[in-house]
Design a protein around this nucleic acid. Structure first.
Lengths: 151, 151
DNA sequence: GATTAATTGTTCAACTGTTGAACAATTATC
DNA sequence: GATAATTGTTCAACAGTTGAACAATTAATC
C-alpha cells in the first residue's frame, strides 16, 4: 500500500466510523424508548446472554472501571430488572441475574432493536453485507490485539 | 435472503458493532491523552475542517440538543482552544473558530489518532479494507436515511 | 410600523456515565 | 497469624445529555 493510499483510507475511516457510531447510537436510543438507556440495555443483553455474571466480568467486557459498573447496576436494581445473589463459598462475589421483569423488558426492547437493524441490513446485497460483517469481526480482533499491546 | 440468514446477520452485526464501538472509543481515548476528551477532539476536528461554524450546525451534525453543544463549547473556550465571534449582520449568531492554541493541540492529537488507525488498518489486505470502508460509507448513508424516515 | 413568530444561543436542574481514591469484607499466600 | 490480593462499594469530581425556560434578535403578518 502506498503512503498516499494509506492516508486516504485513514481519513475515510476516521470520518465514517465517527459518523456511523453517532448515527447508530442515536437510532438505537430512539428504538429503546424512554425507560432504558443504551448502556443499560447493553448490560441487560450481556447478563441475558451469559445468564449470570459478576461486576468484575462486566467491567472487563465493557472496558470500564468497576465503580462505573456499580452505578449502572444500582439503577437497574432500583428498576427491579436485576437480582443480586452472594456466592456461598466466596462471599466477596455477587452474582447478577435478570429478574422476570428484566427478562421481559429486555426481550421487548431487543426485538425493536432487531427490527431496526434488519431494516437497514436488508438494503444491502447479501454478499456485500456478509463480507462487511466478516471484516468487521476481524477488525474487532485486531482492535483487541492493538489494545493489549498498548497496555 | 432467507429469514434464518437475516437473523444470523442481525445477531452478528449487533454483537460486533457494539464491541468495535467500545474498543475503538477506548483506544482513541488513550491516544488522545488527558487534556481532551473524545467529544472535545471531535468538536475541534469539525471546526478545523469547516474553518468556522455555529452551535446549531454542531448540534445537527452531532445529533444532540444545542444545550449539549453549549456545554462542550464552554469547556473548550475555557481552555483557550476556540474563539467566539458575533455575526455583524445577524447578532443572534455566534461563529466558532479554533485559536492558534486550538489548532496546535488538535493537530498534535489528530496525528496520534492517525498513527493508531494506520496501525490497525495496515493489518488488512488493501482490497479488503477498501471494500470495507466503501460499505461502511454506504451504511452511513442508509443510517441517515432510516433516521429521516423515523422522525 | 406594531405585533406576533421564529430563530439563536444560554442557563439551569436533573440525570447517566466515568474515573480515581479510599474503604470494608473476604479470601489467598507466606 | 500477619500480610497480599481480590471483590465490590462509596464518594467527590467531572463530562455529556435532555428538557424547559429564558433573553436577544430577526422575520413574518396584519
Amino acid at each position: 500500500m502506498s503512503k498516499k493510499n494509506i492516508k486516504e483510507l485513514v481519513d475515510r475511516y476516521i470520518a465514517v466510523s465517527f459518523s456511523v457510531t453517532k448515527q447508530a447510537e442515536s437510532l438505537i436510543r430512539k428504538q429503546i424508548g424512554s425507560d432504558l438507556t443504551s448502556d443499560q440495555h447493553y448490560t441487560l443483553r450481556y447478563i441475558n446472554q451469559v445468564d449470570t455474571c459478576t461486576s468484575s466480568e462486566l467491567a472487563e467486557v465493557f472496558d470500564v472501571k468497576k465503580s462505573a459498573i456499580t452505578a449502572i447496576i444500582n439503577r437497574l436494581f432500583e428498576k427491579g430488572l436485576i437480582k443480586r445473589t452472594r456466592d456461598e463459598n466466596d462471599r466477596r462475589v455477587v452474582y447478577l441475574t435478570l429478574t422476570e421483569k428484566g427478562q421481559t423488558l429486555f426481550s421487548e426492547t431487543e426485538q425493536r432493536v432487531h427490527k431496526l437493524v434488519e431494516s437497514f441490513i436488508t438494503k444491502f446485497d447479501e454478499q456485500e453485507i456478509k463480507q462487511f460483517i466478516d471484516t468487521y469481526e476481524k477488525l474487532n480482533d485486531v482492535l483487541l490485539d492493538v489494545q493489549k499491546n498498548n497496555e
